[in-house]
């Protein structure tokens, strides 16, 4: 285990706990993308560049975008829902 890995693995654990602990969904999603990036670095240390590439592109790129799209969709739904109740 290299020194870098010894630093990254506990960091991964901390980030994972943060992802679950955040109340705000948006912060959770952004932390999740940080999680993916750190995981990708660990993959590179373990000489798996293919997996690292997939993890970076999907985990921290595409998934974040899709999650944020879903969150914004939920928010607009909630706003219109509230407005409907008041009227």
């Amino acid at each position: 285990m290299t020194l870098l890995e010894a630093f990254l693995l506990p960091l991964l654990l901390v980030i994972a706990i943060l992802v679950v602990a955040f109340r705000d969904l948006l912060s959770s999603v952004i932390t999740l993308s940080v999680f993916s990036t750190v995981l990708a670095i660990i993959y590179i240390i373990h000489q798996a560049p293919d997996v690292a590439l997939a993890e970076v592109v999907i985990g921290s790129g595409l998934m974040t975008a899709v999650y944020i799209a879903v969150i914004s969709k939920i928010r607009t739904y909630r706003q219109t829902h509230k407005r409907g109740e008041k009227e």
Binding site: P49, D50, L53, A54, V57, I58, G61
Partner: peptide, 10 residues
């Protein structure tokens, strides 16, 4: 490294 899957996501 890479391939159809990773490039496709890009």
């Amino acid at each position: 490294p890479g391939g159809g899957f990773q490039g496709g996501v890009l």
